[in-house]
Simulated scan of single mutants.
Amino acid sequence: MLHPPAWLARLGLNTADLAPFADELRVEGDTLLARHRNQRGSPIGWEIITPACPQPNSRYTVGGQGGAFRVFPTPCPRLVLTNGALQALAVAAFEGHRHDTAYVGLGGHPGAAARATLTNYLVRWGVQEVEHAFGESDAELDVYSTADTHIVGLAERRRLGPLGWGPMPPPGGCWLKALSLVRKRAASGRRGS
């Protein structure tokens, strides 16, 4: 069983939130490692997530590449795109790990491997709806803009069928803060009962 570091628990993520992603995650001390894969599903690197204030830091292992961190059923009709693995974990937990949804963290600005992986999901895996669950920071909006341009261009070139594409902004601008707030409210409600 994968147990989150204490700083992740303080952000609202717990063991049950990590369980669906267990094959794609490692915990080493105070660090969370999230495996990134290419369009063929081959591992291409690890996103290293460490505690920092006010938000955790994220970088890649030496020699690793950013592809896409994800967990999903196949085929899946719904894809939720986030900036990185930590945001994908938070959105999945916030939504209760929907079984019809792939939660995908692009790991920052989507490079060639991430765009190829995204193409694979949309063309081959039956995705019908894409939600972009990016926060309000300039960095996340830049990732969203690149992903949006890629998806729109792909839909036009490949003549994909009707593809729902819409925003899913985090309450309060940050999925981790929104999840933490919901969990704190739920805990105080149980204590008040």
Rank of each mutant, 00 (worst) to 15 (best):
Q128D: 07
E140H: 13
G111H: 05
A155W: 10
A22V: 08
R70L: 14
T82K: 03
G67D: 12
V71R: 15
S188K: 09
N120H: 13
T101K: 05
C76I: 01
W7C: 08
F69G: 12
R158S: 14
Y60W: 10
V123P: 02
H132N: 07
T101L: 04
A112F: 00
E136Q: 13
G64Q: 08
L33V: 00
N83T: 11
A90H: 02
R190D: 01
A93G: 04
P167W: 13
S145P: 02
D30G: 10
H150D: 07
Y144R: 15
G41A: 06
N120I: 00
E136D: 14
M168H: 14
C174D: 15
R124I: 00
G173Q: 10
P75S: 11
A34F: 03
L79E: 12
G164K: 11
I49V: 14
G192Q: 13
Q87V: 00
R190T: 03
A92K: 02
A85T: 06
F21C: 10
A88Q: 07
N57C: 10
A155C: 13
A6S: 04
P43S: 11
G63D: 14
A19W: 10
E140T: 06
R26G: 01
N120A: 12
A85W: 05
W7F: 05
G84W: 00
N57V: 09
T146N: 04
R183L: 00
T74S: 14
P20A: 03
Q39M: 03
G84Y: 03
P51T: 05
P75L: 14
T15D: 12
C53G: 05
L141I: 13
N83L: 08
W165K: 15
E136F: 09
G63L: 07
G67W: 08
A85S: 06
G41S: 09
D100I: 01
A6P: 06
L118E: 00
A187D: 12
R191T: 00
L179V: 12
R98E: 12
I48R: 15
A113V: 00
L163Y: 01
V80E: 10
G192R: 15
E28P: 04
P73K: 13
